[in-house]
Amino acid sequence: MRRYVHGFVNAHDPDVARSIMAAEYRLHMGSDTLVGRDEQYIPAVLHQMAQFPGLGFSIHELITDGTRTALLFSEHGHAGRPPGHGAAWRGVSIYRAEDGLLAECWVEQDHFGRRHQLAVGEPEQVRPVALDPWSGHERGDGTDRAHADRAHAERALRAWLGELASWPPAEGEVDAGVSGSTQPSIAVASVALNAFVVEGSRVAFNATISGTYQGGLPDGGGHGAAVATAIGAFARLEDGRLTGLDAISNRVLVQRQLRASPQGATASPTA
């Protein structure tokens, strides 16, 4: 992970990615899945680096069980296109290792917030970074305790997700930032837990939330459309309950679905 952050992303060196990732590397973001390190993943990353020539990557929190690692991070930089506005946007990523290489990732980034910052020309500040994200972790060693911790976390996550009647939830932070108050309201019909990591009392997870759009995004169309959003989040486990949610959601994915839906096309042709 240190080589991923500093050798690949911050140094913009795709050769490092080839040395630490499996050839069949898979990345899941929203409804998209990139398959193949060289065929799809690296070209997509290089495209983003071209959009932000000085792109940087900062870690706010890292948890790991030895096989899976979750990052709460920010990416930041100035757009290459005039007028060159800057932006800092957060994300949550979960990586799975296999045979000593990164094999799979689930990630969500606040691209909606990034677009807002670039449009208004006012970048958000990068939040305080982790002092030392690499040290002091409990090792996932396959013990009964490790299995028990993971089972305990999964029960708590599925219980929390199962209780969601609407999105965003009443408690916790979602897409914290200047544009965070602009949220799609979704009447939840189903949820899917895609990946999670637990270390001590901290848990990170990726999930898909599907339901019916109730409004909330600009342009006002699409009410009643079937939509889904993907979320990445960090939280705390306390007495078997999930607390302190800090989530990143895929608002751009919801916008894309609304534009494609009959309701969105009829009610808001310019959305």
Rank of each mutant, 00 (worst) to 15 (best):
M1E: 13
M1Y: 11
R2L: 10
R3K: 14
R3Q: 15
Y4Q: 09
V5Q: 09
G7L: 07
D13G: 07
A17V: 04
A17Y: 06
A17I: 08
A17P: 02
A17S: 10
R18M: 10
S19W: 09
I20A: 06
A23M: 07
A23G: 09
E24P: 04
E24V: 04
R26H: 14
H28A: 03
H28N: 02
H28C: 03
G30T: 03
G30M: 05
G30S: 03
S31C: 02
T33F: 01
T33Q: 05
L34E: 07
E39M: 07
A44E: 09
A44P: 01
A44C: 02
H47F: 13
H47S: 12
A50R: 13
Q51F: 10
P53Q: 03
P53T: 06
G56A: 12
L62D: 02
G66M: 04
G66Y: 01
T67N: 10
L72S: 10
H76S: 15
H76A: 14
R81K: 14
H85E: 04
A87K: 06
A88K: 06
W89T: 11
R90H: 11
V92T: 07
V92R: 01
S93I: 11
S93A: 15
I94V: 14
Y95E: 08
R96Y: 04
A97T: 14
E98C: 06
L101A: 11
L102F: 14
L102G: 03
L102I: 14
C105Q: 15
W106I: 04
E108M: 10
F112R: 06
Q117C: 10
G121I: 09
E122N: 09
P123F: 12
Q125F: 06
V126C: 12
V126H: 11
R139N: 06
R139M: 11
A146M: 09
H147N: 11
A148R: 14
D149P: 03
E154Q: 14
R155Q: 15
A156P: 02
L157K: 00
A159T: 15
W160A: 10
W160E: 03
G162T: 08
L164N: 00
S166N: 10
S166V: 11
E171V: 13
V174I: 15
D175C: 09
A176H: 08
S181M: 11
S181P: 08
Q183M: 15
Q183S: 12
I186T: 03
V188Y: 06
S190E: 14
S190G: 06
L193D: 05
L193T: 02
A195C: 06
R202W: 05
R202A: 13
R202G: 01
R202E: 10
V203W: 02
F205D: 00
T208A: 15
T208S: 14
T208L: 07
T212E: 13
Y213A: 00
L217V: 02
D219G: 07
G222Y: 01
G224R: 02
G224A: 03
A228W: 00
A230Y: 04
I231S: 00
G232R: 00
G232V: 00
A233T: 00
L237K: 03
E238T: 08
D239M: 05
R241G: 12
L242F: 07
T243H: 09
L245G: 00
D246N: 12
S249P: 00
S249C: 06
V252L: 14
Q255I: 10
A260C: 04
S261L: 11
Q263K: 08
G264A: 10
S268H: 10
S268E: 13
T270Q: 12
A271Q: 14
